[in-house]
Simulated scan of single mutants.
Amino acid sequence: MALLQRSKQRLDIDLLVLPDTNLILIASVIEPLRGANRIAGSELYRWRLLTPDGAPVPTTSNIAVPAQGSFRASTEDAPLFVLASYDWRRSATPALKMQLSRAARYRTVIAGVESGTWLLAEASLLDGLSATVHWEDYEDFALAYPEVRAVKDRFVIDGKRLTTSGSLPTVDLMLEVIRQRQGYSLALEVSRLFRYEQPSFHIDEPLSAASAGLRLHDPRVTQAVHLMEEHIEQPLVLARLARRVGVSARHLQDLFQQSIGAPPHVHYLALRLNTARRKVIETTASFADIAAATGFNSASAFARSYRASFSESPSETRRRLRRRITPSQASL
């Protein structure tokens, strides 16, 4: 599935937006992709908004969303996201269901976003598959479509079908797409743009910038992440990190997997590489100094990890993204 495979190629996505969709639902698909483009400094994703008739579609916020075209069944193979919120039944015309069925022959992926799941089920595109819907609709959906395995989850990926249960779960899905295509480091940076943990009211417990996009339900994971952030230059080995938290190394690995879906060493490396990338872009420090400041034994080891994570060398990033200070700017 191209949507969930490591790739350097730009991914084009079509969004079929139905009347009375929430603005936040549209943003939940687009904004993580926009954030990935901005942070990466290149167009990793491009999207196109379609409506059933090509006309601007009204939203529940009384703001019409302009369309870039009308949705028609064709041989297009770009992933298709079907977005719907309220009154989805008004859009479930025989013509639209037929168009969705025809589109499924060519589209690499079709996703049902919130009530878009109902549209996919109506078009028999979820038969024999697992799918999720908004929690308020779960019982009704399960009764209406016994051929679909309804599950209570934030999002579900089952073959070529993706479904989400709401706006924030859709953000989670898009972060998973970014993680699969560009890696954990970029997904972690993008997540910081959209979510944060409610900071403590105690002065000595500030909100952590690096962990701002994570829902750290276990205090031991929170403590471990903070320790990682405090020891970027001289990383702690897993055994010592676990001792500081008060658990075994194996238990800490399990807690990380349950809490953020990644083992400690993957999260730790992402923190260090994201710190390094900011230094590459925002400073003139040598790569050897950046390597030392982010816990790498050598500039070559840093370069290998950097390229593996960001698909380019530090020097390529700096050449591509750094703002060049012109003589006239420097004199200001």
Rank of each mutant, 00 (worst) to 15 (best):
A262V: 15
S300G: 00
D289F: 01
H265E: 08
L271K: 04
A285T: 03
V280W: 06
L269A: 05
Y268F: 13
V266G: 03
A291G: 07
H265N: 07
T294K: 09
I290L: 12
Q257H: 06
L269G: 01
G261I: 12
D289N: 05
L269K: 15
S298C: 05
S259I: 05
L271C: 00
A288G: 10
P264E: 07
A292E: 10
A276Q: 05
A262N: 07
I290R: 15
S286H: 15
I281H: 13
R272F: 00
A299V: 09
A276E: 09
Y268P: 03
Y268G: 00
H267E: 04
N297Q: 11
A270R: 12
A270H: 12
R277C: 00
A262G: 03
F296D: 02
E282M: 12
L273K: 08
G295Y: 10
Q257K: 15
L269E: 12
H267L: 12
S300L: 10
S300D: 14
E282F: 06
F287V: 01
V280S: 00
R278V: 00
Y268Q: 10
T294P: 03
S259Y: 06
T284S: 11
A262Y: 08
S300H: 13
S286K: 15
A262K: 15
N297W: 04
S259H: 07
Q257R: 13
E282I: 02
Y268H: 10
E282K: 13
A262M: 09
E282R: 14
Y268W: 11
R272I: 00
F296M: 08
S259G: 11
R278Y: 02
